[in-house]
């Protein structure tokens, strides 16, 4: 399972022991912050194409694991309504050496941001809301 509507508890997610052949682990946690481009954010809502998102997260985890010879790559992405100060995404990787863990963690989050079908709707202090648009290599039909 890569998607959850429940609150991500970092103390649970990170409580993992690497395999004996892994001398390094690295983690990334993405949190909902209280501002975006000068606007006060009160919460966000992630809409998700769940069937495709699960597949894409699986694909990212597998490809990153193979590319960096990781022991484990764990990814958990929250969907639904998330309040400021709560974790939106959590990644944990292990590998034989630290360089691979750092790189794998970075690549996993960058790929999640550009290819997993999840959409962020931000809600602001002033009562307005907006879909956050990311710059992606999407196809444009002329």
């Amino acid at each position: 399972m890569r998607l959850t509507r429940d609150r991500i508890d970092p103390s649970v997610f990170l409580a993992v022991q690497p395999a004996p052949d892994c001398g390094a682990s690295a983690a990334f946690l993405g949190w909902v912050r209280d501002h975006h481009q000068g606007r006060a954010v009160i919460r966000i809502q992630y809409e998700c194409y769940e069937a495709l998102a699960e597949k894409e997260l699986d694909r990212i985890a597998l490809e990153v694991k193979q590319k960096y010879f990781c022991g484990t790559v764990r990814i958990l992405h929250r969907i639904g309504t998330i309040e400021v100060g709560e974790a939106a995404v959590a990644i944990w990787v292990s590998s034989a050496h630290r360089d691979e863990s750092f790189k794998a963690c970075r690549e996993a989050i960058e790929r999640i941001k550009t290819s997993v079908p999840i959409w962020k709707h931000e809600f602001y202090q002033d009562g307005s809301s907006e879909w956050v648009l990311c710059a992606h290599p999407h196809e444009v039909i002329a």
Partner: peptide, 10 residues
Amino acid sequence: LAILPPVAGG
């Protein structure tokens, strides 16, 4: 067929 606007997860 799903028509997917730019994503913004993470």
